[in-house]
Design a protein around this nucleic acid. Sequence first.
DNA 1: CTAGTTCTTGACAGGCGTGTCCACAACGAC
DNA 2: GTCGTTGTGGACACGCCTGTCAAGAACTAG
Lengths: 194, 194
Amino acid sequence: MARPKQFDRDEALRAGMRVFWQQGFAATTTDDLAKAMGIGRQSFYDTYGDKRRCYLEALRDYARTDVGTQIDAIRRAPSPLQALREMMRAAAAGSQERRSFGCMAINAMAEFGATDAEIGAALAPAAMLIEQSIVQLLREAKAKGEVAPSLDEQQAAAAIVCTRMGMTVGARAGRSPESLRAIAEFTVDQLAAR
Amino acid sequence: MARPKQFDRDEALRAGMRVFWQQGFAATTTDDLAKAMGIGRQSFYDTYGDKRRCYLEALRDYARTDVGTQIDAIRRAPSPLQALREMMRAAAAGSQERRSFGCMAINAMAEFGATDAEIGAALAPAAMLIEQSIVQLLREAKAKGEVAPSLDEQQAAAAIVCTRMGMTVGARAGRSPESLRAIAEFTVDQLAAR
DNA sequence: CTAGTTCTTGACAGGCGTGTCCACAACGAC
DNA sequence: GTCGTTGTGGACACGCCTGTCAAGAACTAG
């Protein structure tokens, strides 16, 4: 063994993640990253490989954390529909700054489209998991009579995911938290059984 | 008068627009643009100023055209709800390639967020117009009894806009046209009076 | 046909960004 | 304390990208 790193690898990665998240991949320079991470150029390359690998690692980490947070929130909710409501409300919550970041995964989709296989592979599992969780939630909601028995869970889940994505893009573009909140309530109310 | 330009200004701009649209601002080089436009470097700078101005001009043109197309489609529809349906279906239509482009305005929001005032100003009117058109559509739908009288048009319109944005991002990320189509139908069916 | 203006083409300057090299410093093991 | 190993900081090479320059070609007006 020899000299240990003077910074925490994961902590620095999270700092870099925020820069990528806000600015996107192409607009971010390695200088931006090293500065934000509080480390030197060489340490950056030694630790993360290069800009792209660092981005991919940050993106994977983001996706994992983000999904984890959402799944946790679902578990804590008292009922399936309430879980859904919290999930939608979350897109309207947080500080102005936090909302202006949007979602790193969505920003990545917009920046790269489906052209980049590695990035697609980093995002697909998370997207799948979220959507499947919502399907599951809707099944339970149906069993409890919280939504109409005729509801197609797959379709509904896909639509909800899209609405949430759109809310996040809207948040990044500056849509007001009141409006976002109203959208969240409206979307869930629409699902509620009548 | 002297030597006229050997290319059509608007046509070349549209070619450049497609490059920006697909790759985003930061990832596009002036060489990419000139090549795609079929013009020389100097002609590019003479005609459009610089990269950023060209982007702004393309974005404004995109927004205007896109809004125009959607408004036209609304006018042609036989009923308000049908107009809405067509609008949502449109996000699922087109070739694989076309869908993989997503929407340039949404890509711009994701790339720049609300930080860039000029870009925000280029997008805001179009976003407003679309959303207001949907509000109007919903009012008419309500008058005709196509949707429930209790519907809040503002909230509903905002939610629909978000869903549509999310569909477009999904399309860019590779979501299947069948799934997109199903989301479109589901969203409009949810609105229909019961 | 001539003159004046504008477009076009290729080259180029300057700056920025990425990734590497190297010398030195710091640390752990013995 | 010494040695071997590993992190750090500064400098640097190289390429790419943006925006400009200059010279020549093309066109219109008169």
